[in-house]
Design a protein around this nucleic acid. Sequence first.
DNA 1: GTCTATAAACAGATAGAC
DNA 2: GTCTATCTGTTTATAGAC
Lengths: 200, 200
Amino acid sequence: MKSKSVERDLSPEKTEAILDGAMQEFLEHGYAAARIDKIAVAAGVSKATIYRRFPDKESLFTGLMQQLACKKELFNSTQLQSAQGDVTAFLKSLANKMLNNVADDPQVLTFLRIIIGESGRFPELARAFVQNIEKPILEAMTQYLASHPELELPDPEVAARAFMGTLIHFVILRDVLHSGDIVPMERDRLVDQLVKLIIK
Amino acid sequence: MKSKSVERDLSPEKTEAILDGAMQEFLEHGYAAARIDKIAVAAGVSKATIYRRFPDKESLFTGLMQQLACKKELFNSTQLQSAQGDVTAFLKSLANKMLNNVADDPQVLTFLRIIIGESGRFPELARAFVQNIEKPILEAMTQYLASHPELELPDPEVAARAFMGTLIHFVILRDVLHSGDIVPMERDRLVDQLVKLIIK
DNA sequence: GTCTATAAACAGATAGAC
DNA sequence: GTCTATCTGTTTATAGAC
């Protein structure tokens, strides 16, 4: 009665190693081009050991990605931690934290590529990402903006979307699509003017 | 002296059929999971006929996608055709046209998935997309906003990015990531309030 | 120039030894 | 429970016939 569902006396260390290796391989090559063989090598186990815990390649992929889509740490480290200070300063610092978070971490970019790239074949994965990552951020932003009536925002929810959408679009162009030089935009300028646009 | 570079007396009809079949297959399955076999069947030719014009799978893929990334018709059918009427009405109609364009055409969504999903392995493809699609739209938007000084926009370029970013983010959440029900937002409401946010 | 048939390599999944 | 060796089906790419 101490085993959870299917897993039964399987070495947790190897399971962890497999998930690590799978993450590396899937993030680097995507689903279709990822090789079970490579995952086994990276994890330091045999393929049979992988197939003892995961029925097939697809299960390994979805299991891993669903797990990743819940790790909020990956994204919003600082989720509206302290709504102190004036609104302008707070929004700027929030935007900067979000941009730093992806700029520093290439894995976050790769993760975004996979989520969007595989959203046609793995819609549930995309939905889990939105449910666990995007939705909480949007709701917190809306809440924050709505709690400041002096801003006189006619629609805080749309304002939150504009804020997030502008930043994400910026990241997609600059970092995901490698086009920071094609459509150049100073990061500080974007943040400053975006905040002005929202709160004025 | 009438052949262009490598192509030499190859049936243009079959080349066209191959590109059509390749588009179907690549858009549906992505690069790695696409099968040359399927492309040949869809095009009504043999695999050898494909390999006579394209050295390998990768060339076929990049050639096709680069071509697609130039077909602006796919996207902004109406590119600021007539800047007539008041600014509010014009921006709303522009936003609606953009949203209609992707809502109606699942191929556009699939194309976006591929561009982003493969941007790690095919950075030049991503850059071609930005150069030919995103950049012209952003520049035209900036130009339009800047040509209306009565709006008193401190930074038309950032305003244009906010406008585009909000709409694209909306499309990504609702259509690309299949999450319109998780983070619901009435389309007309978003457009109306977004325009207000920009021009007021 | 195009097709049929095939080569050659590979990848997902498993049987059986330990 | 884990590994080695292998099976089975598949896939890119090409050689050779027409």
